[in-house]
Design a protein around this nucleic acid. Structure first.
Lengths: 247, 247
DNA sequence: CGTGTCGTTGAGCGCTTTCAACCCTGGTGG
DNA sequence: CCACCAGGGTTGAAAGCGCTCAACGACACG
């Protein structure tokens, strides 16, 4: 867990291109770039463990981080998948509470580590930055609530359709909701399943069932939603256990 | 849904006693007290519906509000129970997104309604207030993640023990974790069950099972945890279906 | 070409849900 | 004072659904 891979001279530019640092002033960016560390993680390498306090905020430069809650039996529930430009750990740094989740690299990743003190100093000095962070935390909270909506669904088919519905592109004016659309799964099916609160087997079966029904078309991690998804209509009582041999 | 019940002269004092307004200055309090409305809700009366934007922040003066996500089949999942001094709706007001949940009175309740514009003005004018709100949203996010931890547990027994563990008072120095403690259920068992993602029947059965095992003692909504809860050890394979006749 | 990971498919078990009836309490009105 | 009713909570029986374990297939990588 280390290795600088961006020369300090380029770091400032690299940060400037990350979504997280939009709206940051040049001086703020320079201060952070100077004080921050780069961290490299191999796949499945752990950044933080549940129960320990977090003394830094992290921003994903490349790769993907998996935020999970450990469950009895070595299982885990994915609560967030953070990709390029996403940040991690503000909530713990701000409240000073120990973090209630694990953070693990979902694949080889590079992160920027911003020390908690540096982060808090920047916030204290700049109302606009505090406001921006407040908006970010609010929208992360809403995002989390929408995730709960998915997990709260009773059956696997409902969870998956709910998930697919959330990935529908915003409907343009005058365009019907019956429009097909593409969804690119942002992580391994295993991780997505763990995010929906399903075993990878069940997730696989549900996708197969939906494909079999002609509702979606699947090719690897890329799938296409063909019909309007109506969660209620799809589950007319135990049907996907023995799908027709898939016409 | 209306009725003033506190005379304007006393309103300022009433607000000052609510946890939400700690750290607010006298002037801020006066401005809000002047601009805010009081709202009375009967039990099960709805304040807001999923999908509609929220144009105000609400603070619970008395009673209890239930924040829920509607599920297919008329069911709902409780994501928060807000009591006296708790606030509702900041996240939507701050992000301008439509709220992803319903808000319904769990019992007869009185709320303070702070218009979104007024709220945002106070925030914009005061860095300290923005910081405080940021801390509040961060800690609500962490709280929500801890709720997810509960719901992510596999079995009902695990969910309930996880829930009870979260209500253990902070362990004092030098005090063992084996100490019994009291838990007062903050809402109807029905609502708690819906928060844990269980049917009220299963919740009832799990509590009966734990009582039967001598792990807890239950009297109405007041219960006492007698033994240290070890989620792993409690569920040694299907045992609570046919509890011994309850020695 | 071996190896490991990811994903799929199959079979059986166990838990939760659902529907039902019942108990108990508190509130209401005669 | 009591009958009545509504709501919350408990208990019982049946069934559905996801999980687990296992084996297999596909694919990338060394």
């Amino acid at each position: 867990m280390n290795a600088l891979h961006i020369p300090p001279a380029h770091l400032h530019d690299t940060l400037g291109r990350l979504a997280y640092f939009r709206e940051w002033s040049a001086e703020q960016l320079a201060r952070v770039a100077g004080a921050a560390q780069q961290i490299g993680l191999r796949k499945n390498e752990r950044l933080s463990e549940k129960g320990t306090p977090l003394d830094a905020v992290y921003v994903v430069i490349s790769g993907q981080m998996r935020v999970t809650i450990p469950l009895p039996g070595g299982m885990e529930r994915v609560i967030r998948l953070a990709g390029q430009g996403d940040s991690l750990g503000e909530s713990c740094v701000i409240t000073l509470e120990p973090c209630p989740f694990d953070i693990v690299a979902a694949r080889k990743s590079y992160l920027l580590r911003i020390d908690a003190l540096v982060f808090r100093n920047e916030l204290r000095a700049d109302l606009a930055l505090t406001e921006r962070t407040l908006r970010m935390m609010s929208s992360r909270l809403l995002e989390t609530l929408r995730d709960i909506e998915i997990c709260a669904q009773r059956t696997g088919v409902q969870k998956v359709t709910c998930y697919l519905l959330r990935h529908r592109p915003p409907t343009v004016e005058g365009q019907h909701e019956t429009q097909p659309y593409e969804v690119h799964l942002p992580a391994s099916k295993q991780d997505i399943a763990a995010q929906l609160g399903l075993s990878k087997e069940t997730f696989s079966r549900v996708l197969a069932f939906l494909a079999c029904q002609g509702v979606i078309h699947m090719k690897g991690n890329h799938l296409r939603v063909l019909l309007p998804l109506v969660p209620a209509a799809l589950n007319p009582v135990g049907c996907y256990r023995d799908p027709e041999p898939c016409e």
